[in-house]
Design a protein around this nucleic acid. Structure first.
Length: 261
DNA sequence: AATTGATTCAACCGCCAGCCG
DNA sequence: GCGGCTGGCGGTTGAATCAAT
């Protein structure tokens, strides 16, 4: 029985500890938290209870937002490409999940941590006398989840395309570093933009595009880390579908850039 | 159809670092 | 410098779900 159901049946609204509710979040609590963030932005989580009328402590609110409610979160299975990045970054940083998560836009540290524990810690424990059985089961599960992922991705891409023309460039810019973005586009940049039919018109749009190219270029120049970052910039969303990449939410943009700051 | 074991993931806990008065 | 507050992080737990028997 879920906490929500239990709470409903018992009429006590979930566990109460020193005035704070615990356990699974209800849709109403989610709505209040989303509204709070919309009005006040992220941060000052301990004010949420007072300002949003939630009986949750700040930590709980922050966690719920970061791990579940943030609009830029990716849903669905970790892709093989993301998996390879996780493996690579874990080898480099160990259990620094938040650091690893910053390199995977839309993924949370909690998600990556869970993924690592279930997929890699347990892989090592696959019983030697019956590895085929486990493999078959894993394959079946992955096929099923892959199907679901594809459906979700199609939906997301559709939504992103719809949002393309509604981008709030000023907000995105405020999340990006204050770098000099007034320099003219280089020939490769022009070529890339032309190939994807991207024609920025406002100063802000020019700034955003220039930042994106700069980030990419600076990565290419980091010769000693090329192998590591190559994985990131081969992501389909960035090279294969630049238009869609442009349409990712502002938080995604920030995540994309954060590792290189 | 029922049971059991395995897996997933949301949520909590404790600790730590940074900030501020 | 000190103590309290806050936010962030990594580890852990346990309910829900899935797959096998």
């Amino acid at each position: 029985m879920s906490w929500g159901v239990m709470a409903g049946q018992l009429g006590w609204g979930g566990l109460i500890d020193e005035g704070w509710r615990k356990g699974p979040w209800t849709s109403e609590e989610d709505r209040l938290l989303i509204e709070y963030v919309r009005l006040h932005g992220e941060g000052r989580w301990n004010s949420v209870a007072r300002l949003a009328g939630l009986k949750r402590n700040g930590k709980s609110c922050r966690l719920r937002w970061v791990n579940y409610l943030r609009p830029d979160l990716k849903r669905g299975q970790i892709t093989p490409h993301e998996e390879s990045i996780i493996v690579e970054l874990h080898a480099r940083w160990g259990n620094r999940w938040s650091t690893i998560a910053r390199s995977l836009p839309g993924r949370t540290d909690n998600e990556i941590k869970n993924y690592w524990r279930t997929h890699f810690k347990k892989k090592a424990k696959v019983s030697p006398e019956n590895p085929d059985k486990a493999k078959t089961r894993l394959l079946k599960r992955q096929q099923f989840q892959q199907q679901q992922l594809q459906q979700q991705q199609q939906q997301i891409q559709h939504q992103q395309l719809l949002q393309l023309n509604q981008l709030d460039m000023k907000k995105i810019m405020s999340l990006l570093d204050e770098s000099d973005n007034k320099a003219p586009y280089t020939p490769p940049m022009r070529q890339e933009m032309a190939s994807h039919a991207i024609y920025p018109s406002t100063t802000e749009e020019h700034g955003l595009l220039y930042n994106m190219f700069n980030v990419n270029a600076s990565v290419s120049e980091a010769s000693n880390e090329d192998i590591l970052w190559d994985g990131l910039w081969n992501l389909d969303d960035v090279h294969g579908n630049f238009g869609v990449a442009c349409a990712t939410s502002k938080a995604s943009m920030h995540n994309l850039v954060a590792p290189f700051c």
